[in-house]
């Protein structure tokens, strides 16, 4: 699956690039689902020996075994394949806690994965502008309800129903790095009950 082309949007909406090898003492690559393909593409142009200093954290989600074999064939120093982002989080925090100057961070896959991993990396003191990202796969969004503050993962329709308070929310492009989510606002606030039919905007 090729990388995603997004419509031009507002200035808080993240923009993703294409991963490229950068000189560094060590490399941390975090990906979910089709994000593995960005790492595999990156590997075509990496200098010899780079994966000897690379730690891959990968969450396959629905892609199952599709990419795990090829990732392992890159022979990274460490390759972790986990069942969910939440499960991988303690490991990620441990790795970032130990990070030294010269660590390069590469994120690929869904916006939710990249946003959350970027938040961990910036909390560890790495500037967000120094972190590379490449979007692959699902365009589903991680949404925060502005009213109850609950996060709804993998939102594909607009409007959608908040998984926490049950309000029907419309999907904004306004994005918070600190929350790693887009903002959802009640769609029928001015006319309660007048909820438009949900449209599948993200896949």
């Amino acid at each position: 699956m090729p990388k995603t082309a997004f419509e031009p949007s507002i200035k808080s909406r993240p923009i993703y690039g294409t991963l490229e090898p950068r000189p560094g003492k060590s490399h941390l690559m975090i990906a979910d689902a089709e994000g593995a393909e960005a790492i595999l593409d990156l590997a075509k142009s990496t200098p010899k020996g780079m994966f000897d200093h690379t730690h891959i954290i990968y969450i396959p989600k629905k892609t199952g075994e599709t990419f795990t074999g090829r990732l392992r064939e890159l022979n990274p120093a460490q390759c972790y394949v986990g069942p969910s982002y939440e499960a991988a989080l303690p490991r990620l925090r441990r790795v970032l806690n130990d990070a030294h100057m010269g660590l390069q961070v590469y994120l690929s896959g869904s916006e939710g994965l990249m946003g959350q991993a970027m938040l961990e990396a910036t909390n560890a003191g790495i500037p967000h502008s120094a972190i590379q990202t490449e979007h692959r796969g699902s365009t589903a969004r991680r949404m925060q309800c502005v009213h109850c503050k609950g996060i709804t993962e993998d939102v594909t329709t607009d409007p959608f129903q908040c998984a926490h308070c049950g309000l029907h929310l419309f999907v904004r492009d306004h994005y918070s790095r600190r929350i790693a989510a887009f903002q959802g606002v009640r769609v029928d606030a001015e006319e309660p009950g007048n909820v438009p039919e949900p449209v599948e905007r993200f896949k």
Binding site: V146, H147, L167, Q183, V185, R186, A189, E190, E191, P192
Partner: peptide, 11 residues
């Protein structure tokens, strides 16, 4: 925005 679901209807 936090309370928009309460004041929006007043319009």
């Amino acid at each position: 925005p936090e309370n928009y679901h309460k004041w929006g209807v007043m319009k």
